[in-house]
Amino acid sequence: MSRPAAPDRDPGLQPERTHLAWRRTTLSATVAAVLAVRAALHTGASPAAVAAAAVCGVLWTALLVLAHRRIRALAAAGSPAALPPAYAIAAALGTAAMAVCGAVLVL
């Protein structure tokens, strides 16, 4: 029951670098989500603004879950699998949806 250890390790730390790239991305999303909530509070909390900020919060949570799952997959033993296209599409569409919520908040 011994796992293949040392030769599996990538000397270029590619999975770790990818892990950190996901973390940086969630951090950027956090900044955007916080600004969205701030915008909703400052514009007098109209129903449309609150809804847009709530959607931003949901999108942010979804991105955190996505990043968490991807990081878990990267940390698994053996050479990591490529990013599933569904993850990439979800992350990109989520960001675009955040921009749409932003337009609602600004107008």
Partner: peptide, 17 residues
């Protein structure tokens, strides 16, 4: 390729922010 994608996504998030 994934990291490049994420870098572009951060650029997008920075623009939204």
């Amino acid at each position: 390729n994934e990291r490049t994608f994420l870098a572009w996504l951060r650029t997008a998030l920075a623009l939204v922010g």
